[in-house]
Design a protein around this nucleic acid. Structure first.
Lengths: 205, 205
DNA sequence: TCGGTTATTGACCGACTGGTTAGGAGCCCC
DNA sequence: GGGGCTCCTAACCAGTCGGTCAATAACCGA
């Protein structure tokens, strides 16, 4: 009902132009922001007419949310699949590492996305709920992992698993925005990651 | 520290109107965002003519940065004065607490401020440097406090003071934006603060 | 009282923007 | 070959907004 990516090899012409518009809009929004980017610019960048954009997306806002939704995609993981044969400690560390390298690789898009999410107005409830659901997924996964790690004696029992998971996520978000502000020379993601691991598993293993 | 509604002494008429404009703009920007707020609205809200705003501020952007700078003010503390007779552990905890209650009290303004700071374009170098300087100030203060706490055996030596300070600040930022997203019912600032303290001073005292 | 600087305004304008519309290719099925 | 979709466009429109300007009120020193 939403995305027919499956139309491999023979994407309908419309789908193609839609993608190009989305791509152009993503780049321009990220570079210049929502309001500073006019539909005419998006059209030019995408190599189509302005009216075509309005054929694909009823309003500028609709385009905006389509862009945001697209930006969100890479975050989505199959939580079930994530359960591997590795021990929990390693899984957690890998998760953290994956998050941080994702941050490093997509800093600009993320910066834009977070900024938009933080806006007082705008962020549609739908998108917000999507983000919340994602957050909850990660939190549940982490809670579970931490609990198992504790059961296996890999991690101190002193910490409450659920709270620890929330705290860990919050900390990762902190690293994210600190990184967005300061860049890597002022704030070493690796170093911070080390501290995180130390905190979680310190004195163990 | 800033508000002084009570026209203390003899603020020039211009200063008065300037303040009212700034106040109106701050509220509107925070509520509706920069682009959604027109100068006419600001003028109406402030009870002055639009032209007067342009007499005070050459452009809308100038008004914008004035608002941002004002928003930053409460963050600024006298770092020297902060050194009290309290032991370092207490000082650190108080600092954390102060930060978090500040977050709670000014969530809307902070949300707006952070969102603006995160924008790809715009954030003037001047403002950015101000923020960076502030960050450095806090970091230096914390580093120092942690070091002393370690010397006094209040805090584990396992942690490097400078890194710990950076990490602590980053974590606080994480709590900040997590709070902005989730609100207090999903994320207890107090609980998180407890975990922070536990991490810093766990096993001690 | 006067003259000049400071503070303030209503009226105006040009530029631009989101969105519309009427129409025209290309294509498929009958 | 013609009706009827999908896809796409140039031209246009209505409204808004940042910014200007000429005029003027309020204040202040002389």
């Amino acid at each position: 009902m939403v995305e027919e990516v499956s139309n491999a090899g023979n994407e309908s012409r419309a789908q193609e132009s839609r993608d190009e518009i989305l791509q152009a809009a993503t780049a321009l929004f990220a570079r210049r922001g929502f309001h500073e980017t006019s539909m005419a610019e998006v059209a030019r960048e995408a190599g189509v007419s302005k009216a075509l954009i309005f054929w694909h997306f009823k309003t500028k806002e609709e385009l905006f949310f389509a862009v945001l939704a697209r930006l969100l995609e890479p975050y989505v993981i199959d939580f079930a699949e994530e359960r591997s044969a590795l021990d929990e400690k390693t899984q957690i560390l890998k998760l953290i590492e994956a998050y941080l390298s994702f941050v490093r690789d997509h800093a600009d898009s993320i910066r834009f996305f977070v900024a938009q999410l933080l806006r007082s107005e705008k962020p549609s409830p739908a998108l917000n709920n999507q983000v919340l659901a994602l957050y909850e997924g990660y939190r549940a996964l982490l809670t579970d992992l931490i609990q198992h790690a504790q059961d296996d004696g890999l991690c101190s029992r002193r910490l409450d698993a659920a709270n620890t998971a929330a705290f860990l996520l919050s900390t990762l978000n902190g690293l994210l925005i600190s990184y967005l502000f300061l860049g890597n020379q002022a704030l070493s993601l690796e170093g911070m990651m080390g501290m995180l691991g130390d905190w979680l598993f310190g004195g163990m293993a």
